[in-house]
């Protein structure tokens, strides 16, 4: 066996994984698309990034990537976070595909924790990195039991959790990884995206694929599929809202990151979706922060 270092990405197959592995993952993806929200077990491989760094999403992306794809990678909504940079570089090296920071121009977007603010269009694919695919996991630790609960649609326990939230806090206190029901059948974990993003999943024009590498599960939401956030009739689902607009672009309807500016605790709020924010600024929108700086 060769122990030479392989610094040159060209020595690997296109997009790193061998074709047999890609085929295996594509089969799982097809099944996932056919049964929306159902978690399909797949024989996840060891990838050159650690588990927890997005190996599930990376394997899904690697299996469906084509040479003429345009790839966008975001983490926390931003293209320039360290892990997004690292994953984008990986695919540049092992697949040589074009990359972009523009949501609009991407054919494939791999994401961790956010859905872009701009509505996705037909033909685009959004690949989510998922740490714990099982929405029932923290209510029931056993895989054998949770699979049964899904099979039999025994979802009462999920509402018990929401009931507890309301009883204790007066409202549902789940802010991210907020459970949804897909196509009126399976309860699904949308990955740790903020619940702010849940409505974007519903009847989305793009194909949404979810990969959990460590737990070895793939699931999917096909285009234009119903995705409903769980709630009670008298306590309907609500998304987060901010008191202030984005300091940079003035957007009032986007997820904002809080940035602590100095030791006195001065804060500013800016769009977590960096592409959305810069696009708006280029279009001439300004936020209160920009005006103050001028």
């Amino acid at each position: 066996m060769s122990t030479e270092t392989q610094d040159d990405g060209l020595e690997y197959n296109f997009a790193y994984l061998d074709e047999q592995t890609k085929r295996m993952i594509r089969r799982a993806l097809l099944k996932a698309v056919a049964v929306p929200g159902y978690q399909v077990p797949f024989a996840g491989r060891e990838m050159p990034m650690p588990y927890g760094w997005g190996t599930g999403g990376i394997q899904v992306t690697a299996s469906i990537l084509e040479p003429d794809d345009v790839l966008k990678v975001i983490d926390q909504g931003a293209d320039d976070t360290t892990n997004a940079v690292s994953i984008r570089k990986f695919f540049q090296r092992v697949a040589g595909v074009a990359t972009t920071e523009k949501t609009e121009g991407a054919t494939l977007i791999q994401t961790r924790h956010r859905i872009p603010e701009m509505p996705l269009h037909e033909g685009q694919i959004l690949v989510y990195q998922v740490p714990i695919p099982e929405p029932l996991r923290f209510l029931e630790p056993r895989e054998t039991e949770t699979r049964k609960m899904h099979a039999l649609e025994e979802y009462g326990l999920m509402h018990v959790k929401l009931y507890e939230d309301i009883a204790r806090h007066g409202h549902i206190a789940t802010t991210y990884a907020y459970p949804v029901k897909v196509n009126d059948r399976y309860i699904m974990d949308p990955s740790p995206t903020p619940k702010f993003d849940n409505p974007k999943m519903n009847r989305c024009a793009a194909l949404q694929l979810f990969g959990a590498g460590r737990e070895k599960r793939i699931y999917a939401v096909p285009p234009y599929t119903d995705v409903v956030s769980l709630d009670f009739e008298d306590h309907p689902f609500e998304i987060q809202a901010w008191d202030n607009p984005c300091s940079l672009c003035g957007e009032t309807n986007s997820f904002l990151d809080e940035v602590i500016m100095d030791d006195q605790g001065t804060r500013m709020f800016v769009c977590s979706d960096t592409d959305h924010c810069t696009t708006r600024q280029q279009q001439g929108y300004q936020g209160p922060g920009q005006e103050a700086a001028e």
Partner: peptide, 27 residues
């Protein structure tokens, strides 16, 4: 019982499992 779930949640579980979705009624 579910020891980590409130008394109300314990009693309400079977109702919710049966499809009850109105918090006020369950309570």
């Amino acid at each position: 019982l579910r020891m980590t779930v409130s008394a109300g949640g314990n009693v309400g579980e079977r109702l919710m499992a049966g499809g009850a979705r109105h918090y006020g009624n369950i309570r």
